Simulated assay, not measured.
Amino acid sequence: MTTSRNPNIAILGATGAVGQEFIRLIEERNFPFHQLKLLASARSAGKKLMVCGKEYTVEEARPESFEGIDIALFAGGSISKVLAPEAVKRGAVVIDNSSSFRMDPLVPLVVPEINPEDIAWHHGIIANPNCSTIIMLMALKPIYDISRIKRIIVSTYQAVSGAGKDGIDELLNECEAYSQGKEYTPKILPSASLPKHYPIAFNVIPQIDVFRENDYTKEEMKMVNETHKIFHDDSIAITPTAVRVPVLRSHAESIYIETEEVVSVESVKKAVDAFPGTCLVDNPAEMEYPMPLDTSNKNDVAVGRIRRDLTVENGINLWVSGDQIRKGAALNALQIAEYMISNSMF
């Protein structure tokens, strides 16, 4: 372990979309580190990557890779279940972007702007929430602070990059085939592992991940369960619908909430505008509202179309968009690491 203030860092999944975003953000934010180790599968081992002007060789991720590491940033995937405990055994704190540990009662599930205090009770692993959950709760926390939220109805409009590079390629290949009058057989969405696939170009698919026994998808139930855990409020009634749309990057969400007390639209706008990590984009007269093209590669979650519900006095409707690879994944994890460094928690 390093004895300096700056930690030794490892990035697991360094060659993937989230891993590459980690590297970009480390450079952009001047993230402090003493030593850096880039890890990936055997297939990617040996690749050369530049970080902060220095060339690093990607190594195959093994349990012993985490010797001497203070903070391990895991980009996600099933490998987390295997390697996270191994990293912890060797003294590292793992910040994990997979769903493997999110609902473990011994693992904090953290959005630093919302519940940073939970970081303190970790037992070696800190979980990053689902991207759609992060984007939604960044918009709702400033409202929750005005008046407790009793009910949430949310529909997501999720970019194909949420399905990885294969999802992006699927959309682009389908668009190219359509423009040339050719047929293209879809093979990725809703999920490559499922027996049936649908085109995403000029289409929307109301299924992300597999269906559960209650006919909600795994993605939808993540939003329910993770919201309860992050807000420490199991009484919030939540109904989600998760939809894949033909957008390359950055998710959007239509959210209806009911608050315990009647709150004004102006107070909501003021709270959202003042909340760190969100930006208010809400000017109907000038046709200004959040859109994925504008929020892609941006750190803040944009919130707009804030309006009182037409049927319920304590109901508010809003529209949200945020980059699911940035704030929905890599940035959130890096902010957890930054919080730990600034509070001498490693």
Score class of each variant (00 low, 15 high):
329 A>M: 00
326 R>Q: 06
294 D>E: 14
292 P>W: 09
324 Q>A: 15
314 N>C: 02
330 A>G: 02
292 P>N: 11
299 N>H: 14
328 G>N: 06
335 Q>C: 03
314 N>V: 05
329 A>D: 09
333 A>T: 15
309 D>F: 09
299 N>D: 15
312 V>E: 13
307 R>P: 09
296 S>L: 03
329 A>P: 05
334 L>N: 10
332 N>E: 03
298 K>W: 02
308 R>P: 04
301 V>N: 00
313 E>F: 04
309 D>Q: 09
329 A>S: 15
302 A>L: 07
318 L>M: 14
321 S>I: 14
329 A>G: 10
304 G>H: 03
295 T>A: 09
328 G>S: 10
306 I>N: 12
319 W>L: 11
294 D>N: 15
307 R>F: 04
305 R>A: 13
315 G>P: 10
294 D>K: 15
299 N>I: 02
330 A>N: 08
302 A>D: 04
316 I>E: 02
318 L>G: 05
292 P>I: 10
321 S>L: 05
334 L>D: 11
300 D>H: 02
317 N>V: 08
325 I>S: 02
311 T>N: 09
335 Q>R: 15
291 M>F: 00
321 S>Y: 01
332 N>Q: 09
300 D>I: 02
292 P>V: 10
294 D>H: 14
323 D>T: 06
323 D>Y: 03
292 P>E: 07
327 K>V: 06
322 G>W: 04
317 N>W: 03
333 A>Y: 00
316 I>P: 08
336 I>F: 08
331 L>F: 00
310 L>R: 13
304 G>R: 03
313 E>V: 11
331 L>S: 05
333 A>N: 15
330 A>M: 05
306 I>D: 10
317 N>F: 05
331 L>H: 00
301 V>L: 03
301 V>A: 03
334 L>P: 09
297 N>M: 13
319 W>E: 05
321 S>G: 06
311 T>E: 05
311 T>S: 06
325 I>W: 00
311 T>W: 06
305 R>I: 06
306 I>H: 11
305 R>V: 08
326 R>P: 01
293 L>D: 14
305 R>H: 14
311 T>P: 02
324 Q>W: 00
310 L>S: 13
308 R>Y: 01
322 G>R: 02
295 T>E: 07
334 L>T: 11
296 S>Y: 02
332 N>K: 10
313 E>I: 08
321 S>F: 04
319 W>A: 04
307 R>A: 14
329 A>Y: 00
304 G>W: 05
312 V>Q: 12
295 T>L: 10
313 E>A: 14
296 S>R: 12
304 G>K: 01
327 K>C: 08
308 R>E: 11
302 A>F: 15
327 K>A: 02
333 A>Q: 15
335 Q>S: 11
335 Q>K: 15
335 Q>V: 00
302 A>P: 00
315 G>A: 11
335 Q>Y: 08
304 G>A: 06
318 L>S: 05
314 N>T: 07
322 G>T: 06
320 V>K: 06
321 S>C: 15
329 A>W: 01
336 I>K: 12
302 A>Q: 11
293 L>Y: 12
321 S>W: 05
295 T>H: 10
318 L>K: 02
299 N>M: 04
313 E>Y: 05
297 N>H: 13
327 K>G: 01
298 K>V: 02
313 E>Q: 12
291 M>K: 14
322 G>I: 01
336 I>R: 11
310 L>Q: 12
319 W>V: 07
296 S>E: 12
314 N>A: 09
